[in-house]
Amino acid sequence: MADNGAAPMILTEHLTKTYPNRGGKPIEAVKNVNLTVERGEIFSLLGPNGAGKTTTISMISGLIKPTAGDAFIGGHSITREPMAAKQLMGFVPQEVALYPQLSARQNLVFFGKLYGHYGAELQRRVDEVLAFIDLTDRQKDRIETFSGGMKRRVNIGVGLLHKPDLIYMDEPTVGIDPQNRRRILDTVKQLRDEQGMTVLYTTHMMEEAQELSDRVAIIDHGEIIALGTQGELTQQVGGQDQLELTIDGAGWSEELISTLEQQVKGVSRVQYLPPDEAALDGGIGLTGKLNVFVGQGRRALPDVIELLNRAGVDVQSVKVQEPDLEAVFLALTGRALRD
């Protein structure tokens, strides 16, 4: 069966991986995962360490056999037609999977040959990839002499060499500086926008998933606990904005709480921390802290400030906290992502 363009890019059915555990109960690394990744989208798999991201990617790339279930890449079963499925995908492992003794170019050439590219065509593709990852001038240097960020870029380059329809990127920004990280995130967006590539991106960093993805699946303890666009996910947990205001405690009176709740549209709850409590929560000196939970924070903000000013309360700083994937994860698991 050729890739007919109609099947979803990735489809997993009851994908499960259980590792035997000496003496203990078996480790269920991935439990019954059912995903559909459409063509041309950036799909993120967001989850903390040990959630099962790498195990999932390993199964849908044919690296390890699922204990149960199957995955279809462009309609090809990874367990029954691995060669056809593998030809469609590029792979950027979590580790820098490069031969340290070889140069960047030699690494690209070797892996390129494994995808059936040889001769002048291969050399042209290598040149293109080197230009794309901006390492043309260092191409002859051995990988072991590269910085972490440069290695990561070559690691991505190898995955792109055969111009796959689909690319897996398993935490491609781990352990590198903000500048290189920025570069990689831009690259990922470029791949979707300019080359129409489908990207399956895993990360444990909420900000990355938020910035990149068209859709996100949150994975925890091997299970998909939420899936959708970011809007859908925040809605799902009844997401509200939170206005954090620092105010001069001198003008404050408890009645202001009910005034705010009644007079500003959309406010559901108001919380006041007096100066001594606010100090524990990061406040300074005589300033108190006011938390206003509201449907649409930016729209409500002018009314809140005006009301406070009229009551003689001096507002010193304001922060609008919109609900994010972190909040979603917290709501669903009771834990922070970074734990």
Binding site: S61, G62, P82, K86, Q87, P93, E95, V96, L98
Partner: peptide
């Protein structure tokens, strides 16, 4: 450990 073997194995290679 370097994942070069895994990278070889995800290519269309038996």
């Amino acid at each position: 450990s370097d994942w070069t073997l895994q990278r070889t194995a995800v290519a269309p290679v038996s």
